[in-house]
């Protein structure tokens, strides 16, 4: 089952569009954090006791980034041309984009956590 999934993922296209999925999610989550806090504070006058919507939004962002990273990890290990993987062949191109996607996914994952931490720990509208 897992092997089948991996071989399916390995056959997926990795493009510049898939590369920016994780950072875009991070950016959208960043905007969501500000909007959520501003709207909630403006409407209720105080910080939410249990910010369920924010938890769900953050969880969703982390899930999307994790999936993007997981796909990238598998793609970056697709067997192909011998190392170093720096030639203009189809498999080296896939590995390069996949590796970059994986690094960006890691950075975006940390970025989302760092953005969410103040919202969830400070709990203040001031």
């Amino acid at each position: 089952m897992i092997r089948k999934l991996h071989s399916h993922i390995g056959s997926l296209q990795a493009t510049l569009w898939t590369l920016i999925v994780a950072p875009t999610t991070w950016a959208v989550h960043f905007l969501f954090s500000y909007l959520w806090a501003a709207v909630y504070c403006a409407k209720t006058g105080q910080f939410a006791e249990e910010p369920l919507v924010y938890w769900v939004g953050t969880g969703l962002a982390l899930l999307v980034i994790a999936i993007s990273g997981y796909i990238a990890v598998i793609q970056s290990r697709v067997p192909g041309d011998p190392a170093p993987h720096e030639h203009s062949t189809e498999s080296d191109r896939l590995r390069f984009i996949a590796y970059s996607t994986m690094l960006l996914a890691g950075l975006s994952f940390i970025g989302v956590i760092f953005t969410a931490a103040p919202v969830l720990i400070l709990e203040d509208c001031r």
Binding site: G106, I110, I113, F114, A117, P118, I121, L122, E123, D124, R126
Partner: peptide
């Protein structure tokens, strides 16, 4: 270069944020 700084910074962030609560 990546994991240790991220963990350290997260630790310092989580440690310092509660102290900023008014």
């Amino acid at each position: 270069g990546a994991i240790l700084p991220a963990v350290l910074l997260l630790g310092l962030l989580v440690y310092s944020l509660p102290q900023m609560r008014p």
